[in-house]
């Protein structure tokens, strides 16, 4: 059961990579990056899973005294929280670049940007 999230994460990562490499529209490439990001987050959270345990929030069902034996690892979850916010900032910046490129050439097709291509 613990393999499901990991496998899904890897599939999502590869789907993102495929989108980045095959799409021609810059906006779609940016969406590919976001999908790649999401896959990485799924993998990170899946790696922190501990068999048969629950979320690291202490309340009536998770007693304070026995928390060590009842919860999953909170550290990667905190890490993923950070990663999501960074991903948002990166996506916003990529969209700005896409807009600047569109102003330059009036198109979003990646094939028409050959200035740095060898």
């Amino acid at each position: 059961m613990e393999y499901v999230a990991l496998t899904v994460g890897f599939i999502v990562i590869m789907a993102g990579l495929w989108a980045i490499m095959t799409r021609k529209n810059i906006i779609r490439i940016i969406i590919g990056f976001s999908i790649f990001d999401t896959g990485l987050h799924i993998v990170m959270v899946a790696l922190a899973y501990v068999k048969g345990r629950t979320a690291p929030i202490l309340d009536n069902t998770v007693a304070l005294d026995d928390a060590v034996n009842l919860i999953v690892d909170p550290v990667p979850q905190a890490l993923v929280l950070t990663a999501i916010v960074i991903g948002l900032g990166v996506t916003a910046l990529m969209l700005i670049f896409a807009m600047k490129l569109h102003r330059e050439k009036k198109t979003l097709d990646i094939r028409s940007f050959k200035d740095l291509k060898w």
């Binding site: 393999y3 790696l47 068999k51 060590v68 550290v75």
Partner: peptide, 12 residues
Amino acid sequence: FSGNDELSELAS
């Protein structure tokens, strides 16, 4: 990956 059976040292 074989699934964790207990928390890491830091998390515990």
